[in-house]
């Protein structure tokens, strides 16, 4: 038995293929039988993945969810940024170029608006929780954009490490909620065409959240949402520690 486990751990990526295949098979079975096709199999699989990640975090004490349990370490490779981005680029094969061109400026605007909105919401919550210095407020606001913009902004502004950790946590909550909630609200917010997907990607911005949210809603929309989402973190890292931080300073002086 122990040699089998050792072999599975040695071939971690191959083991991960089997695990994900089983997880998706089980989810598709549940989707067909239990939910009678009302919920996508992939939405169930992503939710199960998140639950397993919680269990993995509890049992290993690490920060990579289930991938920190050595038997499941291959999930860290398969689900890492390299394969994720590779597969996202592949989805562009066969994407409608006209839909991209038509959405042009609305898509670009959605990215800037998405960063500013999330930053503002995060900053307001930080103030409501009693933070009063512009650096902490801006760092938490940036974290509400994505969990990369938060620490980049915090480091640039010299924020306290506890505040940076909070900003990462806010970004994580956002990413996970986008994964789970997108298929549930998709029809209500009109997320059923390429243009809406471009706007959705630009407003949400979290690449992993958008990637999983669209996969669980309609895989055909993935290239459009992913396209705008990949610009979000860059725009966030540009605006949060500069313009938006200055805005917080200015508002602080006003009140």
């Amino acid at each position: 038995m122990s040699t089998v486990v050792a072999l599975l751990e040695k071939n971690a990526l191959i083991t991960a293929f089997v695990i994900v295949a089983l997880l998706l098979a089980g989810s598709n079975w549940l989707a067909a039988r239990l939910f009678r096709g009302q919920i996508h199999g992939s939405a169930i699989a992503i939710t199960l993945g998140l639950l397993l990640a919680y269990w993995g975090g509890v049992s290993s004490g690490g920060s990579n969810g289930l991938a920190d349990v050595s038997f499941f370490s291959g999930l860290g490779i398969l689900g890492g940024a390299m394969f994720r981005d590779f597969a996202i680029v592949a989805t562009a094969f066969g994407a409608d170029l006209d839909a991209l061109k038509r959405a042009g400026w609305v898509a670009a605007m959605s990215v800037v608006l998405g960063v500013v909105l999330s930053f503002a919401v995060g900053a307001v919550v930080a103030v409501a929780f009693g933070f009063s210095d512009a650096v902490s407020i801006s760092t938490i606001g940036a974290g509400a954009a994505t969990y990369i913009v938060g620490p980049v902004t915090g480091t640039a502004l010299g924020a306290d490490s506890a505040v940076i950790a909070l900003s990462v946590a806010a970004g994580l909550v956002k990413a996970i909620l986008v994964m789970v909630a997108t298929p549930l609200v998709a029809s209500r917010i009109g997320l059923d065409n390429p243009q809406a997907a471009l706007i959705y990607g630009g407003l949400m911005g979290t690449t992993s959240g958008v990637a999983a949210g669209l996969a669980a809603t309609d895989p055909k929309l993935v290239p459009y949402g992913a396209m705008t989402a990949t610009f979000y973190t860059g725009v966030g890292c540009l605006l949060a520690p500069s313009l938006l931080y200055l805005l917080v300073l200015f508002l602080q002086r006003l009140f």
């Binding site: 992503i46 993945g49 990640a53 920060s63 994720r84 597969a87 994580l172 999983a212």
Partner: peptide, 26 residues
């Protein structure tokens, strides 16, 4: 392979940190 990769990505998220970091982050 996109969806399987996304499922693996979900399984490696730091869900514990997101859930247990307090009300402000949530």
């Amino acid at each position: 392979m996109y969806i399987p990769i996304v499922v693996a990505m979900a399984a490696k998220q730091n869900v514990l940190a997101a859930v247990s970091s307090g009300w402000l982050a949530l």
